[in-house]
Simulated assay, not measured.
Amino acid sequence: MGRIKQGLDYFPMSTSFMHDRIVRRVMKREGDAYNTDLDDVKRIIALAVECGLFDAGLFRQYGILTSADIQRQYLFITKRRSSSLIDPAYCLLEAEELASYHTSPNSKNSAEDADNKTVCDVTTTADTVTSTTDSATSEAEMSTLGTQNKEKQIKTNQNKINHLSDSPQGENGGGKILKSRKVMTQEDINNLQPPPDGMQRNFEGLLENLHSYKILPSEQYAIILKSNFGAIGHPVWKGFSSIRGSNGKIKLPGRYLLSVIN
């Protein structure tokens, strides 16, 4: 069998408790910084009883701290229980007032039915919300997948259009180098070779400088093409000199070099 609950999980207190006339009287006498010494506690309790915060008769006879207001609060909290648990010897309330807190069986059943109906309504609403949420989630996922597929297709088509040559460098009928839009990797950069046209270049030194400043492969490729693979006397070398002399103030060396040689 279920055990009848004897105590309370919580005891509500008025938010205006500190403004109560009796409480303020006790605080005026003792201050708001109460000590926990035994003598101080005894003195403060005696003062609270004297001021009427607790019932003086029950305190003197039984050493119990209670009052009519405390018992009313207790009965209000437990009014849906089948019986009150206040011992008649300690009860400070009249029989008529006690009866007003008792709930008849029919009223109790009606209250329970109302609670059950509320629970059912809440459950149904929760199921509806969950179903709606699942449906919205599915639609969102399908929309996201459709968007991703569309973006993937656009990217694929763009790569086909931009891919002008299979190699990083190609030549057209006029002998000019075509600028491929292929996404360059560091391996592609390392495999590049300057054209055998007899021009004086320092291609190895150019690659070494580009690597040392950790310039992106795409920027490296543009700098290599614009500098004619590191031609001697090209402005790109002055650009490297300026980067070294800046002592780290030039934060984007790749973009700086491109601005110099454009």
Rank of each mutant, 00 (worst) to 15 (best):
N35G: 14
N35Q: 13
T36A: 12
D37C: 07
D37P: 00
D37A: 11
L38P: 02
D40P: 00
D40Q: 07
V41F: 05
V41E: 09
K42S: 11
R43N: 05
R43V: 05
R43G: 05
R43Q: 05
I44F: 06
I45R: 01
I45L: 10
A46I: 02
A46T: 15
L47T: 03
L47P: 02
A48C: 14
V49W: 00
V49Q: 08
E50R: 01
E50T: 04
E50P: 00
C51E: 11
C51M: 10
C51P: 00
G52Q: 06
L53S: 05
L53N: 01
L53R: 08
D55N: 15
A56H: 10
A56S: 15
A56I: 09
G57E: 14
G57S: 14
G57F: 08
L58C: 01
L58P: 00
R60T: 11
Y62P: 00
Y62G: 04
G63E: 10
G63P: 01
I64D: 09
I64S: 05
T66V: 14
S67Y: 01
S67V: 05
A68Y: 06
A68R: 14
A68W: 06
A68C: 13
D69E: 15
I70W: 01
I70S: 05
Q71S: 03
R72A: 06
R72D: 10
Q73S: 11
Q73C: 10
Y74L: 15
Y74W: 07
Y74S: 09
L75A: 01
L75H: 02
L75N: 00
F76L: 15
F76I: 10
I77T: 05
I77P: 00
T78R: 00
T78K: 02
R80H: 09
R81M: 09
R81C: 04
S82F: 14
S82K: 15
S83V: 06
L85Q: 15
L85E: 12
I86W: 02
I86Q: 08
D87Q: 07
P88R: 03
P88V: 12
P88K: 06
A89W: 04
Y90N: 14
Y90L: 15
C91I: 11
C91H: 06
